[in-house]
Simulated scan of single mutants.
Amino acid sequence: MTDLLLIGIGTGNPDHLTTEARRAIAEADLILLPEKGAGKSDLADLRRQIIAEVTDCPPPIATFEMPERDPELPYLQRVEAWHDMIADRWTTCLAEYAEARRVALLVWGDPSLYDSTLRIAARLSPRPKIRVIPGITSLQALTAAHVIPLNTLGGPVTVTTGRRLRDQGWPKGAETIVVMLDGGCAFQTLDPSDLWIWWGAYLGMEEQILCAGPLAEVGEDIIDRRAAARAAHGWIMDTYLLRRGTSGLD
């Protein structure tokens, strides 16, 4: 049976890898590496740099092209179909390297948090033995970069998506929310009064960008900086934390 190692690699900084993650990469028989086209080649290059730093004798790398989502389908159906296509491409790679017993996938952040790698792995047949090596999440990198706690004293935290924030507004009863997968700056749909935001892009990387302050004062700046960075790099990974009526340390 194939062991499929889902390795959290943090936010692109090799220093974020745990000792367990480094060992798992070095001991893998094969690494599956997604390629997302010329405009996002940086992402594949970063994975290759991490592999090269971890071991002087890197395992074979099997690349596969990430499929495109069908924009004509409803959102959930679109994502399910996309996951099916990715699983098919993994299956093709695994069949080509049938002798590989320990196959690794390097996952941005951690495989548990708004990442579909586990759901895709569950589609494989025959199903491999799946092992997760946890990694630093963008939430940890964001709060560390801004030097703030994730929660208020004894307070809850809600993690949500840009889509839900835009469609449903501020989550009922929430004190602090962390917003992920937001390609449209959904905070624009909120009343900015009494809201603080801590935003970060390319967290942990040399290109890291940070911005924080009252949403009414810094919201437009974040929108402009995000658009400029995405145009410059061809891609962007960012997240932000919102909290009511506080400078972050309450």
Rank of each mutant, 00 (worst) to 15 (best):
R225Q: 12
E220W: 11
C211A: 10
V178Q: 00
I209A: 08
A186E: 08
T189S: 15
D221L: 15
P214H: 10
G219F: 07
T189F: 10
W199F: 11
A228W: 14
M180S: 05
D221E: 15
T176P: 10
M180N: 06
Y202K: 09
L190I: 12
F187P: 01
L195K: 02
C211Q: 11
L190C: 10
E220H: 12
V218E: 03
R226S: 05
E206P: 03
A186W: 01
I209G: 02
A186K: 04
I177G: 00
I177C: 09
S193M: 14
A186Q: 10
D182C: 02
R225E: 05
G200Y: 11
C211L: 14
S193W: 13
Y202T: 01
A227W: 14
V218A: 00
R225L: 11
L210R: 08
G200S: 09
W196K: 09
G173S: 10
E217K: 09
G204N: 05
E217R: 07
I223C: 05
G219N: 07
G219H: 03
L203A: 03
G183V: 03
E206L: 11
V179R: 01
M205F: 07
D224M: 15
P192C: 01
W196D: 15
L203Y: 04
P171Q: 15
A229K: 05
I177Y: 03
L203F: 07
L195D: 07
L215M: 13
G183L: 04
T176Y: 10
A174M: 08
A186P: 07
R226L: 07
Y202S: 06
